[in-house]
Design a binder for these strands. Structure first.
Length: 338
DNA sequence: TGTATTTGACCGAG
DNA sequence: CTCGGTCAAATACA
């Protein structure tokens, strides 16, 4: 299992590398192709190994050795287990530390808003625990670096459209807490909410607490299929119920694959398909009107390409379903509407 | 004119 | 009673 997880991260790293070099590849489509092939091969290996693991262990009582640590009896359960999650967190932290310096200098100066993986301040969480609310159990707290240029007052976008419905001074905090709900709350009964607050000791870092799951992205008539929000592996947050791999893997990855590749893709298409328009992934019908608070990504992400590659095998029992379990399943243990 | 944001009031958990 | 979370009227903005 460790091998599979490490393969997954290898693929993610390759995709990340591709992202980094994408702007330089627009004139060299053959290099891009070979890079995509490599990523595709890695994920194909993951798929094959997962299939083998499922056949070997998934329908038996005895878990594989690595699963025993998680105490689960299937691949999907193992992938959601704390053992698997620790590996995920470990890999992410290692990757994060490696890239942190560059991100700090480049990403921040560009007003990027990279999701930071940090431990929560112990004193702060202790303070919050002293008055724990009923629904705090399903809070997923992350820290996000604020842009240091431009408008530093707003937290970086996470792919969803939020509407602010309140702001409150919090006892013991220097900065007020902003309360946001999903713009589609009324239209699609989407219960997702988030709270955004600057850290006392670092005004360039937001602490973002997500509550509730987006139902707007699951509706066939939903106006958008935005990249999922970035709630972190909850193993490294303070107030969190048992974790699922699904939100972690599918939600955090787009954060580091966040460069503006629109131009790159269009450039590439202008070379390879002189008469063809760049394909667009329509992520939003701007039903919010002219004063919509955020803008939308209307071009494909590298992760989408990776998804496509990963899903290219036309198997009915796709192994992706084992890793990225459905939101419905996730919702079963989730928050009721409020 | 329609939509988003601001902000004081209110509610309810602890 | 305190304080975090939400509501809703007022205001801002395109």
């Amino acid at each position: 299992m460790e091998e599979i997880a490490s393969l997954i991260f290898k693929g993610c790293n390759l995709a990340n590398d591709l992202e980094q070099t994408l702007p330089n590849m627009t004139r060299e489509p053959h290099v891009l192709i070979s890079s995509c092939d490599e990523i595709s091969k890695v994920f194909a290996d993951v798929r094959d190994q997962l299939r083998m693991a499922v056949q070997e262990y998934g329908h038996h009582d005895k878990p594989p050795p690595a699963m025993e640590a998680g105490g689960s009896g299937s691949v999907s359960e193992w992938l959601r287990s704390s053992h698997a999650m620790n590996m995920v967190v470990h890999e992410q932290l290692a990757q994060h530390q490696q890239q942190r310096f560059d991100q700090a200098i480049v990403g921040q100066e560009l007003g990027g808003g990279n999701v930071e993986v940090m431990e929560l301040d112990a004193a702060h969480s202790l303070l919050q625990r002293t008055r724990r609310r009923k629904h705090e159990a399903d809070r997923r707290t992350i820290r996000v670096a604020a842009p240091r240029m431009g408008n530093t007052e707003v937290p970086p976008e996470d792919g969803y459209i939020w509407r602010k419905y309140g702001q409150k001074e919090i006892l013991g905090s220097k900065y007020p807490r902003g309360y946001f709900r999903c713009t589609h709350q009324k239209l699609y009964n989407c219960p997702a909410k988030k709270q955004v607050q600057r850290l006392d000791n670092d005004r360039y870092t937001f602490e973002v607490a997500y509550r509730g799951d987006h139902t707007c992205t699951m509706s066939a008539t939903a106006p958008s299929m935005p990249p999922p929000p970035p709630p972190l592996p909850e193993a490294i947050t303070t107030q969190s119920p048992p974790i699922h791999l699904a939100p972690t893997a599918s939600q955090s990855l787009p954060q580091w694959l966040s460069i503006d590749i629109k131009k790159s893709v269009e450039d590439l298409y202008s070379i390879t398909h002189p008469t063809m328009q760049p394909f667009r992934n329509q992520t939003n019908v701007n039903e919010a009107g002219p004063s919509s608070p955020t803008h939308y990504v209307d071009y494909p992400r590298v992760t989408d390409l990776a998804d496509t590659m990963f899903n290219s095998g036309s198997s009915s029992n796709n192994s992706m379903e084992l890793i990225f379990s459905s939101n419905e399943e996730k919702k079963d243990g989730g928050e009721n509407t409020n």
